[in-house]
Design a binder for these strands. Sequence first.
DNA 1: CGAGGTGTTGAAAGTGCTCAAATGGCGTGG
DNA 2: CCACGCCATTTGAGCACTTTCAACACCTCG
Lengths: 245, 245
Amino acid sequence: MSGKADYTSLLKKTELFCELPDDLLSKFITHITKKSVAKGNILFLEGELASYCYIVTKGWFKLFNETLDGTEAVVDVLTVGNIFGESLALNSKYNFGVQAVEDGEILILQNSVLQKQVKENVEFASVVLSFLDSGRKKQIKEMEHMAVQNAPQRIGCFLLRLCPLGNESDVVINLPYDKSLIASRLGMKAETFSRALNKLRAETGILIDGSRVEIANISQLSDFSCSACSSYYPCEDLKENKGAG
Amino acid sequence: MSGKADYTSLLKKTELFCELPDDLLSKFITHITKKSVAKGNILFLEGELASYCYIVTKGWFKLFNETLDGTEAVVDVLTVGNIFGESLALNSKYNFGVQAVEDGEILILQNSVLQKQVKENVEFASVVLSFLDSGRKKQIKEMEHMAVQNAPQRIGCFLLRLCPLGNESDVVINLPYDKSLIASRLGMKAETFSRALNKLRAETGILIDGSRVEIANISQLSDFSCSACSSYYPCEDLKENKGAG
DNA sequence: CGAGGTGTTGAAAGTGCTCAAATGGCGTGG
DNA sequence: CCACGCCATTTGAGCACTTTCAACACCTCG
């Protein structure tokens, strides 16, 4: 189960690699290594040369920045299927640091391999550009969320994004052990998160038991969470428009 | 002054084109057309095929999305030197609509021309990837702003980004006529904007006369605006790290 | 002058934050 | 096995900032 063979299925779960033909995937796979990461380990820090990108296959990872006054700003919290640290520009530096917030596993790939393929393979270059465009659209959406959603809605939206598509009910999600990370990720304090989660539970009928979240009724959750937003779960336009602008 | 000749200097003022060699610039210039846009005109709407990109050479343009409840979310408000609608991915759609908020002028370029150059010219492709990376970093910064800055600081930060670099005092900025646009852009209501602007004036000594803003002392403004942020004006790290991640 | 758009101001309500204290799970050492 | 301490989470009370609703001032244009 841990041989190079199953890298294919792991990569198929990621946005960047999911639609690549197998022969191209195999070119990447020969350069990929798998690694276990213990809780607390730091993979890299902001400002370091961006040599590698990472694909999460297990666990949760925190992307963070440090502010001038020493506070930590959590840029994102990622789990299985997410990629981070990827860079197509030469000699670029990481924009943030990354730390494992619990024991996990990652695939490691040199950015130079990505860069080489972008240069040599027009189709892959096109995929990469779509990927970058899509990332930009998500960022715009994030901004909108911060502007128009209140705390309970932001949490609901965060949960919805963790739901596998296609399921309509009885989805079970496992959050990272330390929920205050999610609070930071969503731009709120731990206390606010706690209260907002209570409100969300009362409004949408979700069940919470420690780090386990059970969503009985997706549409009830999205009715509540998406009402203030410009697109409704599953945010179709994020997938349709391989965005621009 | 409106011949193709001065397109070069206009393009040199934009982040995407500023460092390109003249011979490459001229390839773009042959495809560029200039156009005047009257206040209120809509250039395109969200979801339309992203055929053209636009470079602002005069006036202010509003990038917006419509939320489900009919509200308008202002994604950005752009002026001279900014580019929007650019897309390197094929068959992509615009992520937002764009409207002229006062009489203005734009340069128009087919995205297919950009795409062609990306394919044919490795150096330009590299510039584009850096541009996209830089855009991503700015988005992360925007998120941070929304999270850590209060209303007066957000306005101050917005003004600072409009200041031409290199000047230290007596900078004069012209805002769009309708200031409530900036309020939306910064995620606050018009009334809050009005009050916050008063506070900003009291704290930093800037002068406001209608749409004209005079900044006597840049460092006084940045001391106030950047104190909560992870980087200080002019946000050096945005330029250093041709980012990744 | 009057109408409509834009900006300002006031008062009250809402939302999230700070500070402080209580709760509850979990591992360590006795 | 139990007591203890640690840490994340929860809860409460008060505060700061932003929004909401409403009224008014200002300016331009007809």
